[in-house]
Design a protein around this nucleic acid. Structure first.
Lengths: 196, 196
DNA sequence: GTCTATATACTGATAGAC
DNA sequence: GTCTATCAGTATATAGAC
């Protein structure tokens, strides 16, 4: 027996798809109810407001991202852990591209009703990258650099993953992962071009 | 004498600030007119619709990003060109954080009235990174990898830049640039941790 | 070219039958 | 727990004076 009702699940699924398509503000509760196949009254019976509905969606998404990143990080030591995190995040994006698009559009909003909970979860996800990076940077690295590097790798994976799904969905997942990770190999900065 | 009127400029500035704050759908034309200090009728005299107003804003933004990236790329050969592009993009983000936030939220929307023009400009910006990367990757690199790497570096710079401005604005720009670029040095993947 | 005033449609949310 | 019907507020956009 599911922890949440079938109705609630249908509403969440509809809100997710529409939110990814039109943005949250651009999605109406009428559309959500229609797509979910229920009456609008039922939507408001299950979720007290539009804000609550999308907050539940977003926090659940970032939360599952965090735990996936954590599992990946703990699955391998050193840089292999970073590789695993990138691969895991790409898999998550591929497995739920609507959620990925929604999160990409919402992650930098600073005046939403759910701003605080999102910021906490965002930092939680980035912290996983920071934890993976911490043992890999030299001792003299400035204090504030780690969050920026973490954000960079997170952003690269997110943007690369969305580029993948939207513009070259036929590329194998492993190739995408390899392309992103290649940039971290140091081979781009080999002084003169490698053909020379 | 400015190419566009002072009124038009005030409207664009107001729309930019409010759009970055509440999102485009969340921004009303009443708010725009109030913040611009003009009547709503004047807004519609200068811009035929809300969509047109924000389209003008976004296309101008991505366009200036493209040319900044291009100039940076041509300013230095090899990997130094990539470094210059990252620095230039960070400077642009710092110089117009509202536009950066707006673009971050809109860049992956696929069903907007301005979808086509945005997609064209987006690809134009990414092409600059691709052009910079092309001489740096090995001969055997798969065809589709370059756009993914370009998207990765673009995403890293965007996400790192936004992280910077929102959560550690006191960090010097050079440090931010250095942090992002360090991840591409290959020093993260030095086998065992550098302290071993 | 800018204003005020208004038309028209839509939105989030609620009330109450079943 | 789900429905229909509806309210009250607000949005884009327009008309027409100045």
């Amino acid at each position: 027996m599911p922890r949440i009702s079938a109705t609630k699940e249908a509403i969440l699924a509809a809100a997710l798809e529409l939110g990814a398509l039109h943005g949250i503000s651009g999605t109406t509760m009428d559309e959500v109810s229609e797509r979910a196949g229920v009456a609008k009254g039922s939507v408001y019976y299950n979720f007290s407001s539009k804000d609550r509905l999308f907050e539940e969606l977003l926090t659940a998404g970032v939360s599952s991202l965090s735990s996936a990143l954590r599992n990946a990080r703990l699955s391998a030591p050193g840089f292999a852990g970073i590789e695993a995190m990138v691969a895991a995040m790409l898999a998550l994006i591929a497995g739920n591209r609507a959620l990925a698009k929604l999160m990409a559009a919402e992650i930098f909003r600073t005046d939403r009703p759910w701003q605080v909970s999102m910021a906490v979860l965002r930092r939680e996800a980035l912290s996983e990258f920071e934890a993976g990076l911490a043992p890999l940077v030299p001792a003299g690295t400035p204090r504030g650099s780690l969050p920026l590097m973490a954000a960079g790798i997170f952003g690269a994976t997110l943007m690369g993953g969305l580029e993948w799904l939207l513009f070259s969905p036929d590329t194998p997942a492993a190739d995408v992962s390899a392309a992103i990770l290649f940039t971290y190999s140091g081979k781009l900065d080999a002084g003169t071009p490698p053909t020379a």
